[in-house]
Simulated scan of single mutants.
Amino acid sequence: MSDGTVETVPGWRTLVARQRPPWPDEARLGEVVADLAASPPLVTPDECDALTARLAQVAEGKAFLLQGGDCAERLDQASAPAIERKLGLLRKMSAILPLPVVTVGRIAGQYAKPRSWPTETVDGRTLPVYRGDAVNGTAFTDVERWPDPTRLRRVYDASKYTVDVLRGGMFVSHEGLLLDYEEALTRRDLRTGRRYAGSGHLLWIGDRTRQLDGAHVAYFASIGNPIAVKLGPSATAEHALALIDRLDPDRTPGRLTFVVRLGARRVRDLLPELVEKVTASGAAVAWVCDPMHGNTFQAPSRHKTRRFEDVLAEVTGFLEVHRALGTHAGGLHVELTGEDVTECVGAGVGFDDLHRRYESACDPRLNAGQSLELAFLLADLLR
């Protein structure tokens, strides 16, 4: 049960919130945030606690987390058939794997994206970069690229619709990037007194926003949801241990997941020290492989793409490291879609196919056939 009022998270507004959009109209943003604060949360504390209990099984080596969905959800694509195709794909993948699976969608909130640069230039013209439908649009025009806070309300409505379609069928997750939105949907559980993010069951901190002195770590430390942190090649074991102290001081199994995104060529070199030192500390974290983000490159056609063989190679390396250390390879986090897109090469898609159905608003996704093939190959590796 929640008291239905917004919980202002102490302190995060005094810290640097990296990747926060440059909202031109802060007054309008305030109006939208106030409107969201008066709206019902999308998920309940009981549901979040249920996921924590399931993720505890992952951390303890008794289950496997399968987390997947779009790189960036689109407001105009939140239809029941499309949502059900994603759910159906994840269920098929889960059924292939040879152990109990915790299925979590990268869905119902994945509308904001961190970006490397604040602007982009096309044909000599510079505009704000696309930051996800929660902030602006993909079309390269002044109107579309202008950060518009009213989009946050549209994101809430689309996410509510998605949760309603999925209700009872799958847990939902997204990167908790836009703290104004997350704070507006934070609620206190009357029974326990703990705060919960009401925007999704599981939220994660991205590799670009995991600074120990940053606003994202401060906010995430204050909520009772299960949470995750993405760890890229620059992450050290010492940083991982410090994140555990900040985000999981009570060492609660299922509370914290580390999602490593190291790249196929570096995973065997970088992962062992992270796992060894965290394991030696006694922390009960779940280890999950994101084989997508460390393996992105530009095709000759200038499409951003990924090779299926690189995705599989990183998964293989991730499993080999855990097998060598005697630890549990806890899960897979992938960008995928139930649609027949041509965005990643391999497993039936060539470079010449990329232009046919390249529909992602940001990063390339595995299509349904590629996703199922990965699940079959992963099942063999797990056995």
Results as ranks from 00 to 15, higher is better:
Leu274Tyr: 08
Leu332Glu: 06
Ser371Trp: 06
Asp213Gln: 12
Pro249Arg: 12
Asp340Cys: 05
Phe258Val: 03
Glu314Gln: 06
Trp146Thr: 15
Val16His: 14
Arg54Thr: 00
Leu366Arg: 08
Leu127Ile: 12
Gln370Pro: 02
Arg265Asp: 15
Cys362Phe: 15
Leu65Ala: 09
Gly132His: 05
Gly331Cys: 09
Ala59Leu: 03
Leu87Asn: 11
Pro45Lys: 06
Leu256Cys: 07
Val217Phe: 10
Gly330Trp: 02
Ala347Asp: 14
Leu75Met: 05
Ser371Leu: 00
Leu377Ala: 12
Asp3Ile: 14
Leu42Phe: 05
Glu314Asn: 03
Gly105Ile: 06
Glu31Thr: 08
Asp148Gln: 13
Thr257Val: 09
Pro226Asp: 04
His333Cys: 15
Gly282Phe: 01
Ala368Asp: 14
Asp290Leu: 05
Ser79Asn: 03
Val104Lys: 05
Phe351Pro: 05
Ala63Gly: 09
His328Glu: 00
Asp70Val: 01
Pro253Phe: 08
Asp180Val: 02
Ala284Met: 01
Thr14Pro: 02
Leu332Val: 08
Trp204Gly: 00
Asn295Gly: 12
Gly369Thr: 08
Leu332Arg: 04
Arg13Cys: 02
Pro10Phe: 07
Cys71Arg: 08
Arg195Ile: 13
Val341Tyr: 02
Gln298Asp: 12
Trp12Asn: 09
Trp117Met: 12
Asp35Tyr: 04
Gly331Leu: 04
Met93His: 02
Leu378Lys: 01
Ala375Ile: 04
Glu60Ser: 04
Phe64Glu: 01
Ala284Asp: 04
Leu29Thr: 06
Ser199Arg: 02
Pro118Ala: 10
Ile96Asn: 00
Pro300Trp: 13
Gly348Trp: 11
Phe318Cys: 08
Gly132Ala: 06
Arg154Lys: 14
Arg106Ile: 09
Met93Arg: 05
Thr150Ile: 01
Phe220Leu: 09
Ser2Asp: 15
Asp49Arg: 15
Gly176Val: 02
Trp287Gln: 00
Leu36Ala: 09
Gly137Asn: 07
Gly61Ile: 00
Tyr130Gln: 08
Ala134Pro: 04
Arg356Trp: 07
Ala313Cys: 10
Gly30Ser: 01
Pro233Leu: 09
Phe140Lys: 10
Asp35Met: 10
Pro233Asp: 06
Arg153Ala: 14
Ser159Phe: 05
Arg383Ile: 00
Pro10Val: 11
Asp213Asn: 15
Thr342Tyr: 04
Lys113Cys: 06
Thr121His: 06
Gly338Cys: 12
Pro24Tyr: 03
Leu97Ser: 02
Gln77Leu: 12
Val321Glu: 13
Ala283Glu: 11
Val9Phe: 07
His239Phe: 14
Leu243Asn: 08
Glu343Ile: 04
Ser371Asp: 02
Arg187Asp: 11
Ser39Asp: 06
Asp363Gln: 04
Glu343Asn: 03
Pro114Phe: 10
Phe351Asn: 06
Asp46Arg: 15
Met292Ser: 09
Tyr196Asp: 11
Tyr181Gln: 03
Gln298Asn: 10
Arg208Phe: 10
Leu312Ser: 00
Glu144Leu: 01
Pro147Thr: 02
Leu202Gln: 05
Ala286Gln: 05
Val135Glu: 00
Ser234Val: 11
Thr192Arg: 06
Val321Asp: 10
Asp3Cys: 13
Pro114Ala: 13
Thr192Ser: 15
Met292Gln: 15
Leu381Ala: 12
Ala235Leu: 02
Pro233Asn: 12
Gly4Leu: 03
Asp380Ala: 13
Val165Met: 07
Tyr111Ser: 00
